[in-house]
Design a binder for these strands. Sequence first.
RNA 1: GCUGGCGUAGCUCAGCUGGUAGAGCAGCUGAUUUGUAAUCAGCAGGUCGUCGGUUCGAUUCCGACCGCCAGCUCCA
Length: 582
Amino acid sequence: MVCRPGHENNPLEKIRHTCAHVMASAVQELYPGTKVTIGPVIEDGFFYDFDVARPFTPEDLAKIEAKMAEIIKRNLPLEKQVMSRQEAIELFRQKQEKYKVEIIEGIADAEPISCYRHGEWLDLCKGPHVTRTGEIKAFKILHAAGAYWRGDEKRERLQRIYGTAFESQKELDAHLNKLREAEARDHRRLGQALDLFSTMEEDGAGLILWHPKGGRIRKVIEDFWRDAHVKGGYEIVFTPHVARRDLWKTSGHLDFYQDYMYAPMDLEGVQYQLKPMNCPFHIKIFKTSLRSYRDLPLRWAELGTVYRYERSGVLHGLLRVRGFTQDDAHLFCQPSQLESEIMQVLDFNLNMLRTFGFTEFEIYLSTRPDKSVGSDENWELATGALKGALEKKGIRYEVDPGEGVFYGPKIDMKIKDVLGRSWQCSTIQIDFNLPERFDLEYVADDGSRQRPIMIHRALLGSLERFFGVLIEHYAGAFPTWLAPVQAIVMSITDAQEPFAREVHAALKQAGIRVDLNVRSDKLGSKIRESEMQKIPYMIVIGKKEVEQQTISVRSRRKGDLGALAVADFLPQMLKEIDEKTC
RNA sequence: GCUGGCGUAGCUCAGCUGGUAGAGCAGCUGAUUUGUAAUCAGCAGGUCGUCGGUUCGAUUCCGACCGCCAGCUCCA
């Protein structure tokens, strides 16, 4: 039983920690014979894993919650008890708590062993805790799930119960609200409600169908992305989905990535394989001619669709799929250009993400792992370049020691959405391995052959995942520049149909993605439908509007904006779209 | 992949201990001509995830598979 390192004395952590104990004691009171394992405090609460005869049902959870309330009401004091290692082992062996014995056996000799007791119930625990169970003012059991002892699927299957606790009911309610809000924003739910995409389910799990409305958004993203890249000094390339197995042998993917690759297919006796990455193709383009130092840096970008085998249990909507399109790019440069290239990528990336409405980022620099290729000086050069670029840009970051890829260090950027959740999207990786494997060269100014440095980078990560994140970030209410339907023209009675069609045509002509609703429904119903489809602008045409040749504009966000001339409204709307305001 | 839960109409869901299914929304048709989040009526829609087993009979019980969900693990 542990608090998160560095958070031990946080009052909330103590409450949650004690709450986990209370939960475990409640479980053992209700279900004798259950063995306890571990139950740490986690970011938004805590969990406890039990070895229990049968899985917990929702009814069990309700009972456990009631029992916990009872234990809290007893207001039992929490008492710390320090003992010797031998005493502790004996105590838990006697209680037949084999997991606890295993934990104690793993604790270093020098460390004191402590237990915390409330009432009759005692748990091996470092502490600290609140002083009495009555200090837990607000808690909630969330759900149960399976887990494994020590996270190892070969070991005992356990049942985990997640819960959370707060210092006040008000804070707990706020947190539960946030969970509900997150559920309402779930991109899988919104994807269906807004007719954006579906997953193929029985025809291929983890494969995405982009419906027309999702397709519109994707097109906007892709057009913007390509434009930005061309302006940013990139060239756009296109590469195939399959290649001969030999390519993957040379690239090393068959050695280190095979588990994620689909089985080879046989074409006229030659083995081909679906691509899990785009890089070898970009390298092949590099190798089609002799490159001069004058050509460098080369920046090649591709929206490249890759296929990776993911275990069935990890698939999740758009966020974890088996086929996805990376917004990939590879930069080939001289060592001296590395830092400035990284700086440029950082700027480019942040600008792009900000355009999509993300303002907060978590940035990590991952350094050399234990197992790696490349020389010490290369690692030093590359890590120094990444660090230097971050620092020169004044970007705050954390170092993830040893978390780099075996072929080079990297910068990962996570974006934070409105609910404060972070999502891994961007990655900038330096690669010493592939240039070596493919024997890449350029001719330097002194005529010698030099090896370029290669940078892999993806900004949005994958279009699928990024789309999922966008949906959740905006709760489906996309800013006008991204919205699949930007405006809808609706008539109040059939009499206004001709003018409504006229307005519709005018907007369409101006390049607005506009729909028309001239059905003989009441206005309220048309508004409701449009609101539910989260269309930014609703344009109402009634008798008055026809007479005055105006339109009444209702904004999804601001409500009724009153009557305007089309000639006044249209430039406003076009400006909003052009500026990509969120 | 593993653990647990689940799979009924396009969607959300009901259907007691086995006797071949029902609602709301959406769709279609008609009526209605409506002023800022739901007008009314009618019609149509399902080999109850798939395959096998038990049974006189399976949506219901059993098994396998597929898929989804919560996690484990992993990741763009």
